[in-house]
Design a protein around this nucleic acid. Structure first.
Length: 489
RNA sequence: CGGGACGUGGCGCAGCCCGGUAGCGCACCUGAAUGGGGUUCAGGGGGCCGCGGGUUCAAAUCCCGCCGUCCCGACCA
């Protein structure tokens, strides 16, 4: 009984649970530099699967990958007034190069709007060059004061899409389209349901006309902004002289959009699905979907069991499914480690399905399948093992999404509520509160100061209440919009 | 930058009050037995006790200074 192997109880200290789970499951480690993070192979494997799926969605929507420089002239940042104001406090600046002080400092990109639209300006001449649909996979640096593994690190990996369009309407359509690409990915692949909607001015991206966001609920009932999509209007095209000749022969500034998701998604995955035994990774994102743990007593058994286990592994590894490709199977043939110890380890890592196989099973032509999501065991025959495993995995994917959805709904509050009740919720268990909003920044600010809750989004139509709250949560005046309030990461 | 706590093998900690030359658990290495939910026994390696100075015959321990980390606020994907 090694106590230090156990994780803190999620219900007692969610933050401690989160940190220890991420470290013990070996997703990441701390770096020598404060606030930076080392993503270990297990964490990176999940990120690679995320990348692959997102990237193919981007290709499907006509985007091409490109790469832009890490270093940006400081003056670029200053060309868009709101943008520099938003990002200046958190940029890292390079002042020396080649042993000499630079004439103009270079900033390490906190995001790439400026350098990308400077390049777009060179590439675009006529409406025929539009739309220009670009995505880049990159790292960015933001000098945050307080950091947290995956959720807020000084440096993080992300993808940022940048597009230029001939019309406002087309840019708006793109903004919403990519928001929905994110939403589909988060719900279908991460099994993490999200609320989409527009941000208020207070939370809008610095330099955007409109910002849209996907907001997920974590298990401590706090919100996580999981992905954003911005309609930049002509703010950047004007700043970087990104204009084109129209079909009619006139000159017009292009309309831009940008959108991104980051390694923060991994943190969201952990905080959405983890339990007291560690990670739970949805099958579609799991680098290993099924782990086979062989069991034996005598050397004789060992030989027979291992041989059969290798055969099962070979069969399953080649198993082709209709949509999700070949099964990803791993045989845990480590010796000198008890089966129980292996179970705990694989559970900590969140592998969705475990196959236990011992002498008794061998004789009966069967095995035991154990789901990671609910830890339910089932004895099944080996005759149809491929189908059974494939079915179980897709069931796990669905069940995890439904679980997360139901948890979110159980912690959501709708309809007019008193401000006292609201405070009680925010200071107590937390949750998503759908409440009226008069549209005044003063009410928004006052609530933030008093309860730490912010308007996550003004929810899209499908998330709004059947009978929307009529009164502003704070001032009691008639509301102009329904707002989703929550404390956030 | 304000308020609090803490720096001791890879990790987590005890020792400090009351000075005497460093210990525990886990991890790691070797051997044997074990193996259907965190095995057991035996043996072993590894530590400028955050850094610098002071007091003392003697400092992990007392005093001063510095550095660093974490938590709470201001910032934020």
């Amino acid at each position: 009984m090694a106590d230090d192997k156990k994780l803190p109880k999620r219900s007692e200290d969610f933050s401690a649970w989160y940190n220890e789970t991420v470290l013990k499951a070996e997703l990441a480690d701390y770096s020598p530099v404060r606030g930076c993070m080392v993503i270990r192979p297990r964490g990176y494997g999940i990120w690679e699967r995320m990348q692959r799926q997102l990237d193919s969605s981007f290709k499907d929507t006509g985007h091409q990958n490109a790469y832009f420089p890490l270093l940006i002239p400081e003056s670029f940042l200053h060309k868009e007034a709101e943008h520099v104001e938003g990002f200046a406090p958190e940029v890292a600046v390079v002042t020396h190069g080649g042993g000499k002080k630079l004439d103009e400092p270079l900033v390490i990109r906190p995001t790439s709007e400026t350098i990308i639209y400077a390049m777009f300006a060179k590439w675009v001449q006529s409406y025929r060059d539009l739309p220009l649909l670009i995505n880049q996979w990159a790292n960015v640096v933001r000098w945050e004061m307080r950091t947290r593994l995956f959720l807020r690190t000084l440096e993080f990996l992300w993808q940022e899409g940048h597009t230029a369009h001939a019309t406002e309407a087309e840019a708006q359509e793109e903004t919403i389209k990519m928001l929905n690409v994110y939403r589909d990915f988060m719900e279908s692949w991460m099994a993490m349901p999200v609320i989409t909607g527009m941000k208020t001015d207070a939370e809008r991206f610095a330099g955007a006309v409109r910002t849209y966001s996907c907001e997920a609920m974590m298990q401590d009932n706090k919100a996580l902004q999981a992905g954003t999509s911005h309609n930049l209007g002509q703010n950047f095209s004007k700043a970087f002289d990104l204009k084109f000749q129209t079909e009619a022969g006139g000159t017009e500034f292009a309309f831009n959009t940008s959108w991104g998701v980051s390694t923060r998604l991994i943190g969201g995955l952990v905080m959405t699905h983890g339990d007291d035994f560690g990670l739970r990774v949805p099958p579609l994102l799991a680098p290993i979907e099924l782990v086979i743990v062989p069991i034996w007593r005598t050397d004789d058994d060992k030989t027979r069991v291992m041989e059969a286990a290798r055969n099962i592994t070979a069969t399953l590894n080649g198993w082709e499914r209709r949509k999700t490709g070949k099964l990803r199977v791993h045989l845990d043939d480590r010796e000198g480690m008890s089966p129980g110890a292996k179970y705990y380890e694989w559970e900590l890592r969140g592998i969705p399905l475990r196959l236990e196989f011992g002498p008794r099973d061998l004789d009966a032509n069967q095995c035991v399948l154990v789901r990671r999501d609910n830890r339910v065991k089932r004895t099944v025959t080996l005759d149809s093992i491929g189908e059974d495993v494939a079915d179980l995995l897709s069931m796990i994917q669905t069940d995890m999404r439904v679980d997360a959805f139901e948890r979110r709904e159980a912690n959501s509050y709708r309809g007019d509520i008193s401000y006292d009740k609201f405070r009680e919720i925010m200071e107590g268990p937390g949750g998503f509160v759908y409440a009226g909003f008069c549209g005044s920044g003063e009410c928004e600010q006052a609530i933030k100061e008093e309860t730490k809750a912010t308007i996550r989004v003004l929810p899209d139509e499908e998330f709004r209440s059947a009978e929307p709250p009529m009164k502003c949560l704070k001032c009691g005046r008639g509301s102009v919009a329904e707002a989703l309030w929550a404390r956030a990461y």
